[in-house]
Amino acid sequence: MSLEPDLAAAVATLERVILGKSRQLQLCVACLLARGHLLIEDVPGVGKTTLAHALARVFGLGWNRVQFTSDLLPADIIGVSVFDRSTQQFEFRKGPVFTQLLLADEVNRASPRTQSALLEAMEERQVSADGLTYVLPEPFFVVATQNPKEQLGTFALPESQLDRFLMRVELGYPDAAHERELLRSGERRDLMERVTAQLDSVRVCQVQQRVRHLHVADALYDYLQRVLRATREHPEIKLGLSPRAGQGLLRAAQAWALLAGRDAVLPEDVQAVFPSVAAHRLLRRDPVASGDPADFARGLLRTVPVDA
């Protein structure tokens, strides 16, 4: 089995827009296909918004962008009930969350109350207002960004809330060659007009279904459990991966395997997504001493044998 042409084309298109970040792009796409939500953590100006925009266009999704600020209220995201004089009734005006791809820019700038409203919507895939429940559209994919360097006047997402994001990806600066090309070709947002949709929302849901049913052998479940146990038994780690994180890891690995054109998940797939899935979830005793979280996660993987 090989990768389906529309998915291949989608990834190729993304690579034309975001230069030199092939692996991160694949992780983002895997996150979408695994029905997860994505947290991009990076300094401004490396193309987070461009990436979200490009994803929405390539996958044919409707998208909204919310710039989080300290005075942003939950209603600004969820929506608000307004009294309609003509009908003499309250009418719910849907907020920007009612979209297929939501870019929550600088999510750590908003108050915890607003943050948690968003996180709830992400988890439940529905919104409650005035005793009524409104189902969010499918697919529903949140791309949140935060700037780790900026501390003043921000509310960093608490670790427990980070669990809601399937993956955390860092884009980082482009390397010299790609940066030169970036400088030469001018504004990336202009390219966006030429980015055409390779899939539509129905097709995305269909692929998401396929990911869920990708074959997982007993031996792989064994390996996955060994990995989870390793996170829980590691002396450096205060809190290992939760069962929900384990599910997420499996789903992400399935999506990765699908993107690699395979019909079954291999340990390599688990290993490929593990740093992105686990790094923001592992609660370490001494984060400074044990270094970069992704590197730490990769080091942890080295302690887990593939064969029993």
Partner: peptide, 9 residues
């Protein structure tokens, strides 16, 4: 082969 290395890797 490293113990943590998958067959394809």
């Amino acid at each position: 082969r490293r113990p943590d290395e998958g067959p394809l890797d």
